[in-house]
């Protein structure tokens, strides 16, 4: 039962191994990780800003909601901030449940909510300068299915 907000990289393999080891009672584990896209070579760096204090609260609330709704045996959320290079992992979620459908759905729910309800803001830096990534209407629409 963990959420972590950190600037340093994480080792997804080690995280999943540790998560699996303590997933008592689970029959299924789903993991997802999001990477910085290189946007066809035009992106040199991604800068992720966040709201210390609120970020931790929001992640914990989203995680707790997923655990309750899908009766998860466990859920893990890790999200990074700071300067990231193309190909680096931005975040990961892992969900554990008795049967796979709950773990899959909960992971999708976590992703949809992290996208537009966790206080992170991405800025893309490239040869052409810097731009804040705009939230998409589809991100907001994605919340409606839950």
């Amino acid at each position: 039962m963990t959420t972590r907000v950190q600037s340093q990289p994480f080792d997804m393999g080690a995280e999943v191994q540790a998560f699996t080891k303590t997933a008592t009672g689970a029959g299924a584990i789903v993991t997802f990780s999001g990477l910085v896209r290189d946007e066809g070579g035009t992106l040199t760096e991604m800068e992720i800003e966040h709201y210390p204090g609120m970020t931790e609260k929001a992640l914990e609330a989203i995680r707790a909601e997923a655990v309750t709704r899908w009766s998860l045996t466990d859920a893990l959320v890790i999200h990074r901030f700071g300067q990231l290079k193309p190909g680096e992992q931005i975040m990961m979620v892992a969900t554990a449940s008795r049967h796979r459908s709950d773990a899959f759905q909960a992971a999708e729910f976590l992703m949809d909510y992290l996208k537009s309800r966790a206080p992170f803001w991405k800025k893309e830096l490239g040869a052409d300068g810097q731009t804040w990534v705009d939230a998409k209407d589809t991100d907001e629409d994605a919340l409606k299915r839950w």
Binding site: Y51, W121, A135
Partner: peptide, 10 residues
């Protein structure tokens, strides 16, 4: 009180 643009996590 905090003001910010729509969030872009994930």
């Amino acid at each position: 009180v905090a003001f910010f643009p729509p969030m872009t996590g994930g």
